[in-house]
Nucleic acid binder design. Structure first.
Lengths: 105, 105
DNA sequence: CCGTATCCGCTCCGATACTG
DNA sequence: CAGTATCGGAGCGGATACGG
């Protein structure tokens, strides 16, 4: 992971929910915490918060907090977060091909 | 993972050693078990065997066994195994870019 | 509304010992 | 040479409860 850019990249988006989160942010541009949680059936606020934290530290996600009561926090993709899209598309294309091959029998 | 080709693809190559194994097989075309283990410092025969098994079940790796004493087994990439290369290249390119961005401060 | 604190099961992986 | 059998630790992720 230290010398291999592929492993480094995978490290950034590994985890059960991170890709789904990135996908939602790609669909939505800007989205609030609760709305995000509603769009990710099964995720707990613990995992969502933790995943968003890590994605923010990796500069993939931007967090905008408004000092209001009740609180309001908006999440969006950074430039770097948006730029992963082609790579994921390539991987998805291969994945679909692999799926066919494996389930051919 | 069942409905998402990206997650399906990642599932196939996830694990600590699988990408390194695919990398070695890409460099070498054909390689024997012990030689592979020598080229992957730190891997145990348990993990190597298990990883190769799974990669073979996913049709990424071909296993050719010769009925000799002592045993001789050769591993190589399948067509599907070779076809993942562009996707990994794309991911690696993004990973390098992310690495710079993150370590820029 | 947007989180944090805590506990807990489960899977991944390493270490060690053994075999045809 | 090319594996298998078995045990054990560490970390990921789920459930629940609580807080500003």
């Amino acid at each position: 992971m230290e010398g291999c850019p592929v492993r480094f990249a995978l490290g950034l988006v590994s985890g059960k929910w991170k890709l789904r989160i990135l996908w939602e942010l790609n669909q939505q541009e800007i989205i609030r915490f609760n709305e995000l949680q509603r769009r990710l059936p099964g995720i707990s606020s613990v995992m969502l918060s933790k995943s968003l934290d890590e994605l923010e530290q990796c500069r993939l996600v931007h967090r905008e907090q408004y000092p209001e009561i009740p609180p309001k926090v908006e999440y969006s993709l950074t430039e770097l977060g948006r730029s992963i899209d082609p790579a994921l598309k390539a991987l998805g294309a291969w994945g679909a091909q692999a799926y066919e091959q494996i389930h051919a029998n």
